[in-house]
Nucleic acid binder design. Sequence first.
DNA 1: TGCTTTAACTAGAGCGCTCTAGTTAAAGCA
DNA 2: TGCTTTAACTAGAGCGCTCTAGTTAAAGCA
Lengths: 340, 340
Amino acid sequence: MYGHRVTMEDVAAQAGVSRALVSIVFRGVPGASDATRQRVLDAAVGLDYRPDRRASRLGRSRSRTIGVAFHVGDAFHGDLLGSLYRHGDTAGYEIVLSGVTASRAHDEAVETLLAERCEALILLGAQQSRTDLARLAARLPVVSVLRNVHAEDIGVVRTDDAAGLRLAVEHLHGLGHTRIALLDGGRAAGAADRRRGYRVGIRHSPGLSEALLPGGVTELEGAEAARVFLGLGSDRPTGVAAFNDRCALGFIDVVRRAGVRVPDDLSVVGFDDITEAAYPHIALTTVRQDAARLGAEAVRAVADRLERGTAAGSVTIEPELIVRTTTAAVQSGEAGRRAG
Amino acid sequence: MYGHRVTMEDVAAQAGVSRALVSIVFRGVPGASDATRQRVLDAAVGLDYRPDRRASRLGRSRSRTIGVAFHVGDAFHGDLLGSLYRHGDTAGYEIVLSGVTASRAHDEAVETLLAERCEALILLGAQQSRTDLARLAARLPVVSVLRNVHAEDIGVVRTDDAAGLRLAVEHLHGLGHTRIALLDGGRAAGAADRRRGYRVGIRHSPGLSEALLPGGVTELEGAEAARVFLGLGSDRPTGVAAFNDRCALGFIDVVRRAGVRVPDDLSVVGFDDITEAAYPHIALTTVRQDAARLGAEAVRAVADRLERGTAAGSVTIEPELIVRTTTAAVQSGEAGRRAG
DNA sequence: TGCTTTAACTAGAGCGCTCTAGTTAAAGCA
DNA sequence: TGCTTTAACTAGAGCGCTCTAGTTAAAGCA
């Protein structure tokens, strides 16, 4: 019904050359004259031929394939995939995707990639245990993106989470805020480091003290934190640094509807700089994670280990504060209280 | 450094059987005694062996592989992937993913899947031209999920978009609204059908007339539509049916901040039922698309064509109205005006 | 002119599986 | 008891590529 499979053999016959020559042309290596090259390409177009990647990967000694496990539907992972595709391509590696879903755990996603004989693994937001990761790293190069795992031989590419939160706190402090709370991320990737960064920021800014609100990863948890916040009464913080943008967005949504004006009464800083944060009607002040660079570094880390046998290392990318409209200087009353 | 590749040969040697026997055991077909089966499995575990899928796919006559092109970072596509993985697995097909990103167009994503020798393609939110799709469908079975393409031999699995919008309009009309606007989706997948459903709904409800607001796919476009809405003055609609949830969310965000109370002054209905819609602080009334069923039907359509040679058909799944808290009966003033 | 070098090509083994067409031996049966 | 059937196994070709180790002929050169 759908016609027979066309192979290199067919192209070779059509162009009047050997199979090996067709392979040379398609791999783009030297060994064929320009005239022959053109003849082979023409024959291939005529037959609507494209090399079979399964056979190609099997035939060559190295699969030149990087397996990537990602969380399906995660917007930031989406941005990272874009970058990984781009840089994988220029480095000469194919990217093979394996999605983590509610019913498809990390282990299963990784298992698929191993069966595919990937040469290395890039894990986005890895959630495996330290032992599982170490066992994996004994088989092939593994780099964890976003999450700072301390397992042996695991490369890490991440944003300097602590520095990011310190930026957020200093920004708020610079605007005159003295009661600055953290919407904590609990056990999420990067949460411990961000908590630490928040604490350092507080300690280094004279007159500040810590206040942690239980937050989380999604808008839902931000909304819940907002209810706790609203219950705080007059002692409320005037500045909030959130674990991430989605949490910040849920938080803002609820406090605004309770009559709290952002940024007049309350300043909020997010983390990530997801696409929505830049929408004019949202315009969230946030700490940007650079998806393009994170992806580039992940590919580079993997390629270095594969090609130069470099040891697994850790790459930390500096975040950047993006000031938009959810933060502002404290209002006079508050400023007076601070001056006093 | 990472040890040599272990193959079926090694397992066979270890278990004292032929390579063919190991293959039989791993494919789970009859032809091996229970004792041998166990011996082979033990040997495989001891050697940490897993079959090489590249070789396995190459060796068998059918690759039993379904290629899926999806938009990286799209939350609803994420839900669909979850369902596709699940149903592909039970139907005995491997799912191979290929992401569409800003720098990686649909064509490129599809090209990868063809080179992988997938037996069939499932395209989520396909955006290729009708001719490109028809050409593709001449090579292998193709089903488009979400988007209703009218190209020859392309299977379609989608929600009854028109019925969904009719549900939305009838819900609003039932609550006493007489001025019901559509936040239009323009050229997005399903937008034409939703527009049609809206019109049918309006026509079938006595005393209603059409009002289209330019909307779109994202919160951004919803927010822009909100500005147009706010400029409308006293003639404003009291009910709005949005192209999708994200658009509805952006719209609500902006009108609320302008002092419009939802649902007291204005009722809004979304479309999709994305995860966020169910968050209690959002609680968006919406028309649900059933990702689980869409995925199941897509796999079934593909499997039917592959195994029974069924002709490409169209499957339409009925949407469901989920009433939450962004819609309410019109306020007395409005109701009086309607009665008069 | 005779030798070396190089460009352009080919033969064929190999990658790690699947699967058809066998073989062998035990079980079943008239 | 001799035949058929069946379960349990194996040999080896094939899937569609890559890549090494060649061959051939033209070009370059003293």
